[in-house]
């Protein structure tokens, strides 16, 4: 699977420049599902990136199965941590960010939800944006914050959708907050309660 090419959008909508090797620098790597392929490609381009890399991997939801996890481990990172979900992996990832020294690189690969959450965590920990490489792999579902109740719904595949917290019908904007790591959802039938357009599948 190749990195996703998104259609042009507004300036707050994130674009993912892909993973590029920065040599044998101290680094954190985090991938989910098919994002593991991007890390494997990175290591193939420059095997030295793995020498000081702490690799975090979430195989869950990947059609790629356990084989990819085995392959990633075999790339020889300085450490390898696996978790069933980003939420489960997050405390260990946050600890690694807190322990990171100046000059550490971060490589993120996977869904927009994973990239968004991990990037928000990294920026809050003080990592500069320029130190982060990200590559989108996998589905196009979005992480969306309801502007009304502030609850975040993961894996939103259609527009509009129903907020999993307050139940309002939300349309999905391209407006995106890096701090929250989510797109903005706004009530679609605010002016005409009950008149909700037919949901459409979200496209890249």
């Amino acid at each position: 699977m190749r990195a996703t090419e998104f259609s042009p959008s507004i300036p707050s909508r994130p674009v993912y420049g892909g993973l590029h090797p920065h040599g044998a620098l101290p680094s954190l790597m985090l991938a989910e599902g098919a994002g593991g392929e991007a890390l494997a490609d990175l290591a193939q381009a420059d095997p030295s990136v793995m020498r000081h890399a702490h690799l975090f991997y979430v195989p869950a939801g990947a059609a790629t199965g356990p084989d990819l996890a085995v392959r990633l481990r075999a790339l020889g990172p300085a450490s390898y941590v696996e978790g069933p979900s980003y939420a489960a992996l997050r405390p260990r990832f946050a600890r690694a960010l807190a322990d990171a020294h100046m000059g550490t690189r971060l490589y993120l690969a996977g869904s927009e939800g994973l990239i968004g959450q991990a990037m928000a965590e990294a920026l809050a920990a003080g990592l500069p944006l320029e130190a982060i490489d990200a590559e989108h792999r996998g589905g196009f579902a979005r992480r969306v914050q309801c502007v009304h109740c502030k609850g975040i719904t993961e894996n939103v595949a259609t527009d509009p959708f129903t907020c999993s917290h307050c139940g309002l019908n939300l349309f999905v904007r391209d407006h995106y907050s890096r701090r929250i790591g989510a797109f903005q959802g706004v009530c679609v039938d605010a002016e005409t309660p009950g008149i909700v357009p037919e949901p459409q599948e979200i496209k890249p």
Binding site: I10, P11, S12, R13, R173, D174, H175, S177, R178, R179
Partner: peptide, 10 residues
């Protein structure tokens, strides 16, 4: 937390 271009994006 957004920059000038990001918050004017819409």
């Amino acid at each position: 937390g957004m920059n000038f271009f990001e918050w004017h994006a819409p």
